[in-house]
Design a protein around this nucleic acid. Sequence first.
RNA 1: CGGGAUGUAGCGCAGUUGGCUAGCGCACCACGUUCGGGACGUGGGGGUCGGAAGUUCGAGUCUUCUCAUCCCGACCA
Length: 491
Amino acid sequence: MAKDFSTRAENYSQWYNDLVIKADLAENSAVRGCMVIKPYGYAIWEQIQSVLDKMFKATGHSNAYFPIFIPKSFFSKEASHVAGFAKECAVVTHYRLKNSPDGKGIIVDEDARLEEELIVRPTSETIIWDTYRNWIKSYRDLPVLVNQWANVVRWEMRTRLFLRTTEFLWQEGHTAHASEEEAIREAETMLQVYTDFAEKWMAIPVLQGTKSPSERFAGAIETYAIEALMQDGKALQSGTSHFLGQNFARAFDVKFLSKENQLDYVWATSWGVSTRLMGALIMSHSDDHGLVLPPRLAPIQVVIVPVFKTSEQLEQISRVVGPVKSALESKGITIKYDDRDTQKPGWKFAEYEFKGVPVRLTLGPRDIEQGTVEIARRDTLEKEVFQIKDIENKVVHLLDLIQQNLYDRALSFRENNTFRVDTWAEFKEILDGTGGFISAHWDGTAETEEKIKEETKATIRVIPLNNPKEEGRCVYSGKPSHQRVIFARAY
RNA sequence: CGGGAUGUAGCGCAGUUGGCUAGCGCACCACGUUCGGGACGUGGGGGUCGGAAGUUCGAGUCUUCUCAUCCCGACCA
């Protein structure tokens, strides 16, 4: 473990990269653009998965699995969908290798060219809707509420650990409904699920809204998104939910017979969050001392570090730790007692601090004598000494307190970095300064949106849900506008 | 795919106008002293200097080619 790494003020993106590597979350792999998620990082992802999975099931969804390969022809059936993804698809063209005739290694066997090339899924709408055609005949077959946990591949030019990698892990929900209203309601429900997860589990406040047409998912009628603000003032899209209308049903000819004996196309949604959430988690809470994890997602919620010189002292400490550990575990707390004698206490303090463990308990000979324990919290770095008999309730309470504090801290950061702006000069000034969310009037045209992006790199992140109507003038063009939208530079 | 940079131990780097046995810090191993915020001392292990060809008595150093990585742009959850 390195002693020092970049601070946020020095170089935010370097700080992020250092943190991911040194906190043992992930590393770059031998394959360009693809990452290895290390056990500690994967444990956080598993935690995210397990909570979301329960939430999906609680809202009526079931998991299923579809192939990683998609026939090329499927892909081109929905016009805007192909247009959106064509430039970043990995394609399988052959199915066999052979020894090189010159004896040097192995080459693609040209005789083993595929009749139809296969696309490595960048998303699964096409293969799933091709399948749904056979599943759905009648209104009695609806709704279909399916989710899949999978990996997808998008051939990106520039990658960053967790935030944008060529291969990433995600979940994609794909639902089919008998009516437009029901499908829209589904898309909105899942947006709310994502919001609850982000705020209650990740302790990240998010803005809910719809995307402007140019930011919409390829093939969607409406894209809903949650958008979070990172500590460097840039926005991070953290989850999306799409109302797909009948676009995919038409493309794949998925029709059902209604109660009224009418043949109609099925209404669709899709929704997903990815390992990008890991990036959001890291950038929302962590500080110059390393990772800071919200207790509800931390793989280790409490670490106990004994301070000892002799094995007798360690034994003595372990006798006290044992019951405390079991008592906390019985309350569902994940706890690690690090009694290794190969590392010094100071080293361990630094290590767990860097890895963002929310609470640390320290017990040394002094504590054994006095019946006390030192308790340190990661979010504020404060330390206090308590009677060991009180520790159980104290820890339970403290974990809740930390969870809440992280959310409050992130919320007040967002509030302090959200600006109502009415002039173009101020718009640019904020982006060149602190960054943040800018609430400004927009004339609703793609041209203006594009110009703003060209000049400032800022994009419309969301048009907030239940956005109040307000007459005003577009911050860029001066044309009449009926509502404010949220701009920011984004990841 | 354009512009810039870098490849020397696991990581971070130094290595002079070409010169003798390629070095430093961290990490690693052994022993001793330490142990309440990343300990210290002593000793030790680890290198096809990205690769190939060339110039030369001699190449980490010079030449050519090649490969790879990183940064900056166009695309994106």
